[in-house]
């Protein structure tokens, strides 16, 4: 009896916590499809806000994905070899470099953005293009890629595997492709997942770096909250959900499958 009471108590508590987290999301989503938020759901259900958001912000949403995947490409191309080099070389210098790469996590995004603006703000073409945002995102997400790949290198003896492949005649590039990357795959996938989601949701840095022509999803969201009806902003949130959830699920499934293989 006492046992069941404890169970019931815990169950209710869990439900309450879940509700606390989920009700705002549900409210926001429902607001995005109601005719008038102030009159509530009785005012009717509509897709007009979503259409409106799409018309206004389709470019922004597209740019977000371009930036996210470009960030992923850069962190993959630079981060995975960097992690490999740091791991194989080792020593004090490698640790210092690793700390430097990690530093942007501790520095507020605004400060990084400010530094970028101070340094490169004068290069008009660069400043105005989306590549400027890309630079900020790469700085911000690089530690996540490097760290998760390094973590995998720590669990397998990558140095000996590399030497093993070398003893069989494989060139450094061949070793990297055939042995290092496939064995680092779980870390690369985990890193990729983080890089893409962080880039899609990044606000601090991006808010400082963007121009009216280079807005990403979260900037557009802030924009719509600030200047438009609540229903539009909510519809925007809904679109954000719809875009990012399938992406997350897909990457997670992919990672799971890779791990089981």
């Amino acid at each position: 009896m006492r046992y069941r009471l404890i169970f019931a108590g815990q169950f209710v508590f869990t439900l309450a916590v879940a509700a606390f987290l989920m009700v705002p999301a549900a409210l926001s989503i429902s607001a995005g499809v109601t005719v008038s938020y102030f009159r509530g759901i009785r005012s009717g259900v509509t897709l007009q806000w979503i259409v409106q958001v799409w018309e206004l912000y389709a470019g922004t949403i597209l740019l977000s994905f371009v930036v996210a995947f470009a960030t992923l490409a850069v962190t993959l191309l630079a981060g995975v070899p960097a992690a490999y080099a740091l791991h194989v070389r080792g020593g004090r210098l490698a640790r210092v470099v690793e700390e430097l790469i990690t530093l942007p996590l501790a520095i507020p995004g605004l400060a990084i953005a400010l530094a970028l603006l101070l340094t490169y703000g004068g290069f008009g073409d660069f400043r105005r293009s989306w590549l400027f945002i890309l630079a900020g995102h790469v700085i911000f997400t690089m530690p996540f890629m490097v760290r998760s790949v390094l973590a995998v290198f720590g669990t397998i003896d990558i140095k000996t595997l590399d030497e093993g492949a070398a003893s069989l005649g494989a060139s450094p590039w061949r070793r990297f492709r055939d042995v290092i990357v496939p064995n680092a795959m779980p870390g690369i996938l985990a890193g990729s997942l983080m890089v893409v989601t962080l880039s899609l949701g990044e606000f601090n840095l991006t808010w400082m770096l963007h121009t009216p022509l280079t807005k990403t999803l979260p900037i557009g969201l802030a924009d719509s909250y600030a200047s438009m009806r609540l229903e539009v902003a909510s519809a925007y949130t809904l679109i954000f959900f719809i875009m990012i959830i399938p992406l997350l699920v897909a990457m997670q499934l992919f990672a799971d499958r890779e791990q089981r293989k």
Binding site: E163, S167, P182
Partner: peptide
């Protein structure tokens, strides 16, 4: 040809 103490076989 080299045989390593830990064998260094490729897990992939």
């Amino acid at each position: 040809g080299m045989v390593f103490q830990s064998y260094a076989l490729f897990p992939n």
